[in-house]
Amino acid sequence: MAIFRSAVPGLGIVKGMAVTLRRFYEPKATIKYPEMPPDVATKFRGRLQLLYDEYGALKCETCFQCAQACPIECIDMGGMDTKGRFHVHWGPPETYGERREESALRRSGRTVPDQVYEHFATFDISTVDEILERYDHDPKHMLPILEATQAAFGYLPVAAIKRISERTGAWYAFVYGTATFYSHLRFEPPTADGKPVGVAARRPTDDGYVAALGASLGGRRQ
């Protein structure tokens, strides 16, 4: 029988076309998402996945927007949760582990050290508590709180951000994410003469822009 089948010329094509024909008249599986919502179970939440760019680097740049937006605080860059445990609430832990070593630190201005969390060692909490007291532990005064903290330490130590989060009730991602947005707040101690280091040093400045504009007007390319 098998010998006979293979002997009939063109039978493969006919069978292939039969499949095509059958599929042609089947109902379509493509839906016009997002105009038409897919039919999934109501408790389906999808799955977080971090994507890589064409150079193999993670596309996530730890901007913290997703973590700030998440209503149940399940996303947390750097693998730290709000209670200070080294742990990831959700998503493939190994992927978030990479965040800890790469962008989270890069963006916060740190050179990636081996002992990632050595920063959390000893720390005088009373200074932060005084500042919080002054602002009534109110997260609505987050910017003045962060500015006062930076004025006290020269930068925003991670332990201070944790303390602020704990005492104001604003979750860590909120405090840290807010701080990353404002260019005058930094996460690394400045140099002895007050110059910023790390990412804070690479941020474009107003003076830099004015100087570049002057150069361009004068026919020089910076």
């Binding site: 994410g177 807010t178 947005f181 404002y182």
Partner: peptide
């Protein structure tokens, strides 16, 4: 007084900053 981003000039961003939030 506020500082730290060009976008603070935009009205809804300014309101966010006055409320202690990320300036978007």
């Amino acid at each position: 007084p506020v500082q730290g981003a060009y976008m603070l000039g935009e009205e809804t961003v300014l309101l966010k900053a006055l409320d202690g939030k990320r300036g978007q």
